[in-house]
Design a binder for these strands. Sequence first.
DNA 1: GTCCGTCTGTTCGCCAGGGCACACTCGCCA
DNA 2: TGGCGAGTGTGCCCTGGCGAACAGACGGAC
Lengths: 237, 237
Amino acid sequence: MSKSTEQPATNQLIDQLPAATARYLMAACHPVDVEFDQVLAEAGAPVYNVLFPTTAIISITAEVGGHRPLEMGMIGFEGMLGASLALGVERHPMRAITQGTGTVLEIPAPDFRQQLENSPALKRAVHGYLFVLAEQLGQTAACNAFHEVSARLARWLLMMDDRAGGQPLVLTHLFLGDMLGVRRSAVTIAAGQMQDKQLIRYSRGHIQVLSRPGLESVACECYPAAIAAYQRQFGCA
Amino acid sequence: MSKSTEQPATNQLIDQLPAATARYLMAACHPVDVEFDQVLAEAGAPVYNVLFPTTAIISITAEVGGHRPLEMGMIGFEGMLGASLALGVERHPMRAITQGTGTVLEIPAPDFRQQLENSPALKRAVHGYLFVLAEQLGQTAACNAFHEVSARLARWLLMMDDRAGGQPLVLTHLFLGDMLGVRRSAVTIAAGQMQDKQLIRYSRGHIQVLSRPGLESVACECYPAAIAAYQRQFGCA
DNA sequence: GTCCGTCTGTTCGCCAGGGCACACTCGCCA
DNA sequence: TGGCGAGTGTGCCCTGGCGAACAGACGGAC
């Protein structure tokens, strides 16, 4: 856990920009550590900063009155928060909270807007990411409507594991239940079955993925679909 | 039904453009009649034409294997289909089908792309609409997860009625069930209760809204929320 | 008028998941 | 070392909605 892993300390969306563009953008960014369950954005609130996660993971959630927030999308080192600036909108469309701890690259909204003006390549990348995010939203919504808890849990763990670079995940059954829109004990049961099958191991708010292939066989087809959507747009995983 | 109503024969997204821009765009459009349950776009398929509904209504649906498509968003005279071109993406993110019959203004994708290049105002409008659509997606997803059938049905009827300009809606319980992601007889029961309360009247594939206030009291808060989201962006209903 | 297909009404069994409650246990802290 | 609180295991009853099946009813086609 303390030794450095293969997890990149950079952001993939930035990395695939032309070198000069990426350097220019990075020069305006500074790294910030975020903590677990921190609210990074409220729905409808102004975008003050744009965040490019490196080791951090961000969840996009939708809320309706009287219920806990439901996860609609996940942002890790492959994406960004605040992309709506590239639509000329200065508000966040949804709520965003952090998963676990980690680092993001932060750039003030005015600086980012200026770089968007100056770099067609950057604008193209952000626009492409917005499209992928929209596809992910639709996929997740249909998944929540039709797939059962265990399949959704498996998919969620895989998506988190992808973005955490093999680090143990820091989250409780209660938190997981919120993300999936189910009650806590439903998660306890599904997670218990996965632990029995040696797919994961967990204890008091820490989950370790043991068998990705095993999880993939439990997960619904929404997991490969989400990866394919990203690949179609950016040509890499 | 044959007499012309207050329903505008134009598209609101076009109307709120600067006059010259709107004229230029309209000149490149030609009206097309669409029929009930016609597939206008498949998920991932190329965008050949951009459509601006005037009297037609389009549903955006998400699919997962083995289940019928689930509605994620609705496009009427306030919106457009094919907005992803403004993200530089030539594919549709989701499936799109028609509701009832009606007219759309159609413009070939290359022509539209060129107009986007030439008109910052048009690009701004389309980008803003994309943002609203994203908000609507999130809202709908949370609504599907948490709200019960009758509330969602009421919301859906209100949204359709808004876009149909008071015309009777042409759709069956089966079709409605697909949109809401529930089975046909669940719709029959919910719709039957609404008919008992004189909120709607229906017969063999035709539904007439009788009392909007009544429906609004049954619908969940997602209905006013969706309207507010549009107003925030465009300053009108 | 007769036929037939579509749309609607209704029922029955079934189950995933909700809501709630309570017990246990691990790790932390006084 | 004892207490405490968060996290987890487990049980209960209940409900909304599913799946499937069948019957009636309306409307268009012939």
